[in-house]
Design a protein around this nucleic acid. Structure first.
Lengths: 230, 230
DNA sequence: CGCGAGCTTGACGTTGTTCAACTAGAGTGG
DNA sequence: CCACTCTAGTTGAACAACGTCAAGCTCGCG
């Protein structure tokens, strides 16, 4: 499996997901020997809803969107970066993926067989509890998403999205979005036109400063308020 | 802790959640010795969003609704019966609950300290993987819920709900709902009035037969179609 | 018998989508 | 270098979906 030169290796990889910190050097070596490193271009699909879930994916470099599809409509559930693993939700449950993921920029993805991960879970209880912790963190994000999407109106949903991007994804008030307007609409569960209209409204009302994909928060206070009142 | 007479005991309990099948008799004894059995009346709250998550709850008899609250509005995420455990999503992650649960009828609830469950997870890897499986099954239900709630219109959402109740909760085409009209609305993310109107529409169109809380499916086909087209 | 909670109905207003047209910018081939 | 095309982004108007409000109803219960 090691027939291609890899850019990273698991033992020294500075971007490995948290749960891998629980693994010994020998265990990391096992992962390293059994992974593939794949380069994807912007827009390419990493894994597909309805397909087999044989691998756990890790974004070593780049970023991706995770989404579910229904009748040609998409809902982006989350944005992924190197802190996330894709596919954990199929472990010990089913081997069919319930979501798709696609790259938002050119990315390097590590692919590890679920067998390897399952084996490590069975052999290293610290790793196992860390996986449970990771799963539950994901679920926690779901609760926030589902409240936002079902209980709030467009302005509240968009405020949530902007706060999520700046606080949790980029950790900066001034960001360069990798999402298209349609992606923003798919993330907030509204039509593209509505997303554009409200973004412009926020801009005109000096809540944000928006120039193409450059976004800067001007008033945290108003965004938080909009998020709260829904 | 054993100062009150209990109606059930873990070793012989016919209704224990699946993951407890992985425990030895000694381990089940440990659970049995460290649990409380509490009788709740219909409508009473079992656990509260924002409160501490010190216990894992199991519905030994009865049923409950699990919901999230935001600005006085509720969204019922799922209906619970004896196959479910409440509180697993806080394990190894945080000790604050992200949802509430309330009884839909008079119920017996077992309360087990998360410490006991954590210990068992660390000591019994089959139990641990079974917990992961349970968590992932829950997440899978979330995917369906979030698609239903965000991508479908009222008729599709209500069709989803009816199919869910009959197929997954009661496993019968003819059921006696324990939910009020408002609960149905909270489950499908619509106003009470809309829920009533569309239920009546389904009744008039001979898709279901509805008399108070007695519900019978007449046309699976149309319900499935409505669910599909959204 | 009267009270109150849950249920039901119709009228109306708001929210958000759809549709169609238009614009700007990036890539392509002659 | 200039049409040409293609895609993403933008705008306004019409329309549909859905919630809100207010009123009336029903049924169980004290």
């Amino acid at each position: 499996m090691n027939n291609r030169k890899k850019k990273y290796n698991c033992i020294s990889c500075p971007k490995k997901a948290n749960c891998f910190d629980k693994l010994s050097k020998e265990e990391l070596k096992l992962v390293d020997d059994n992974r593939l490193e794949i380069k994807y271009n912007k827009g390419e699909i990493i894994c597909k809803q309805g397909g087999f879930a044989y691998n756990i994916l890790h974004i070593t470099e780049g970023s991706a969107k995770l989404y579910v599809e229904h009748n040609d409509k998409k809902l982006i559930l989350s944005l992924l970066n190197h802190t996330d693993l894709i596919g954990l939700h199929s472990l010990f449950y089913n081997n069919v993926l319930e979501y798709s993921a696609a790259c938002l920029e050119n990315s390097y993805i590590c692919s590890i067989s679920t067998n390897i991960i399952s084996t490590l879970i069975r052999e290293n209880i610290e790793f196992a509890t860390s996986i449970i912790s990771t799963l539950n963190k994901d679920t926690s994000r779901f609760y926030n998403r589902i409240i936002s999407l079902t209980q709030k109106q467009l302005h509240g949903r968009l405020a949530d999205a902007i706060l999520h991007f700046t606080k949790e994804i980029y950790n900066s008030d001034e960001i360069e979005l990798k999402l298209s307007r349609k992606d923003i609409a798919d993330f907030t569960g509204m039509s593209t036109e509505s997303a554009i209209r409200i973004l412009k409204e926020f801009h005109n009302d000096k809540i944000i400063d928006l120039d193409g994909k450059k976004l800067k928060i001007i008033s945290h206070q108003i965004l938080e308020k909009l998020s709260e009142i829904g």
